[in-house]
Design a binder for these strands. Structure first.
Lengths: 181, 181
DNA sequence: CAGCTCATGTAACTGGTTACATGATTGA
DNA sequence: TCAATCATGTAACCAGTTACATGAGCTG
């Protein structure tokens, strides 16, 4: 249940409205946690009811922008949750299911799809490295910057892994194709 | 929507009952796709209604073991799905949300949790490497074995990444702790 | 035949997704 | 002033999770 805490974090970094949050979830925060605007509005309402956030200008509803800020109770809840133990989620990837299916039913078009994934991961890797070069030329200086850098590095590491794996998979699938024909 | 296709793959590898499938989802298949027995039974019923699988012995219900095998229509569906294009799912990890929260609200107990995660990832990595040593001493020989090996390697790569990342995170969090006190 | 375990199954709930609706603001 | 766009919101749905129930078969 990370969404409420991702929202608290985002609102602490800078108070803003639901639509702005949706925008931020398409960029920085969205690199490691995604949310649609429907989820965000639903959750903001809940957080307000819980007394963890409050609207800055108590003006009314539909169509009018409504910015929120975090209340002390929200900050306290975020602190509690951040230090809480969590089990690491096991790997869960559709591509692995497909590879295992290929192993059973023989050659399919899967290799085409992996080539296209490779291109996308290369693109994302380049994006992250560009951001890293621009925003963290000397790593992080303050504690906050170091932690932000760390999260970005996780993205770089993950995309690098995917690039490596896609190349390996393409090699295996192509080689096997040749041997089969 | 991988579960039906994971089940088709498992049943092609070896026809079996729901409870046996649940067991297999705790081991090999479960390393990259998890499912509870409730999900499995629900899905098996659906697959049978779709005409993709059929019970081997048409004996009745509750309490009696019911083994299934894949029908030609099921195999065809699996082939179709395997070659289908899929967008790579973006990284989505609670730990990144927590790190970002730490960056905003200052030191918490997070580093303890990461130390415990590190131990778990090391354990899983050792398990995967043990399986690799035992089952793939010379890599894969046939196409099928090579693909199975590839999937296992993905597990090794992912756990290695997590081990590296946890160590990096512990370094940053500890160092920052010292600087803060 | 009592009690245990195995195998199958039901029900309620949660987080996330998709499709659609409506009020407010802006600018040609 | 009206069409486009922005901001907020409702509803239905889907995959996955948790808790619990019940029939079948085995063992002491």
């Amino acid at each position: 249940m990370s969404l409420p805490h991702a929202l608290l974090t985002a609102l602490l970094e800078r108070p803003c409205s639901g639509s702005e949050l949706a925008g931020r979830f398409d960029r920085s925060i969205g690199f490691f946690w995604q949310a649609t605007h429907q989820q965000i509005y639903r959750e903001l309402k809940r957080l307000e009811e819980l007394g963890w956030i409050t609207a800055l200008e108590p003006e009314a509803g539909r169509g009018r922008k409504r910015a929120y800020q975090v209340l002390p109770a929200g900050r306290e809840e975020l602190r509690r949750w951040t230090g809480e133990a969590q089990e690491p989620k096991p790997l869960r990837d559709e591509l692995m299911v497909r590879l295992r299916a290929e192993a059973v039913i023989g050659p399919t078009d899967l290799v085409r799809d992996i080539e296209s994934r490779l291109a996308q991961h290369l693109e994302k890797l380049a994006l992250y490295q560009e951001i890293e070069r621009r925003d963290f030329p000397d790593g992080g200086v303050t504690r906050q910057r170091e932690l932000q850098h760390l999260v970005l590095q996780a993205g770089v590491m993950a995309e690098t892994l995917w690039v490596d794996f896609c190349r390996k998979a393409i090699a295996v699938l192509s080689e096997a194709d040749v041997a089969t024909h």
